[in-house]
Amino acid sequence: MSDAPTSMRLDKWLWAARFYKTRALAVDEINLGRVRVGGVPVKPARDVKVGDVLTIRIGTTAREIEVKGLSNQRGPAPKAQALYAETQASITAREAAAEARRLAPEPADSIEQGRPTKQDRRRLADWDRWSATLDDSDDAGDPG
């Protein structure tokens, strides 16, 4: 009997290939539709075989990979990377997206703090910059 299986559960393969730290995280991501096999959303128990094409979305980046091998156990990173190969189109798209983010960064990323605190709001309210009071020297309001 050989050690290499002919097919295995998707969640276990994602864990063994080191895409997710635990199988539970892999199951959550699969259930959220962030992992697809052949462009179709699947369930965690779906069997994957050598040659299947997976689309995995982690954060804002999507990767299209081809399954090259199966393993029942999680090994070191070099062995895990031997279990799959990213398609050339996926590599090109990822590099183009990284270049676009470098050239035009997201404006929200420059915000260092979130909403103003109560103290910040009080300081803004005390700031008299946006006052709408009229000057006494302005006679525009007098009829006559």
Rank of each mutant, 00 (worst) to 15 (best):
A140V: 09
D135Y: 00
V53Y: 10
R57K: 13
V37Y: 02
A100R: 13
A77T: 07
G75K: 14
T22R: 04
K79W: 05
E95F: 03
R101F: 11
G144L: 13
P143M: 06
E64N: 14
D128W: 05
N31K: 02
W130V: 03
I65L: 08
S2N: 15
A80R: 11
R63I: 13
L10R: 10
A26E: 04
A104H: 15
R121E: 02
E64S: 12
E99L: 15
D139S: 01
L70A: 01
R121H: 02
I58N: 07
R115K: 12
A97K: 12
A125F: 12
L10K: 03
T61Y: 05
A98W: 15
T22S: 13
A82M: 09
M1T: 00
E99K: 14
A97W: 12
P105C: 06
T92K: 15
D3S: 01
I91Y: 08
D3F: 09
P143A: 06
S90R: 13
S7R: 06
R123V: 00
A125Y: 12
G144F: 14
V40E: 14
P143V: 06
V67A: 03
R63S: 15
T117A: 02
R34W: 05
V48W: 07
V48K: 07
A93V: 05
G69N: 07
P105H: 11
L83C: 09
V40S: 14
I56A: 03
T22F: 04
Q113R: 10
S7Q: 13
D52E: 03
V42S: 07
A104G: 08
A77W: 08
E64V: 10
D142C: 03
A96P: 08
P44S: 04
P107F: 05
W13L: 07
V50E: 11
I91W: 11
I30V: 08
D138L: 08
A132F: 04
T117E: 10
I56M: 01
V35A: 00
D135S: 06
P116G: 08
S90V: 00
R23N: 02
L103N: 14
A45Y: 01
N31L: 06
D138N: 06
I30W: 13
D52K: 04
T22W: 09
V67C: 11
Y84Q: 02
R94Q: 02
Y84A: 01
V37F: 00
D128L: 09
K68E: 15
F19S: 08
R46D: 05
T60R: 15
P143W: 12
D128I: 01
E66Q: 15
D11P: 07
G33H: 01
D28Y: 05
A132N: 10
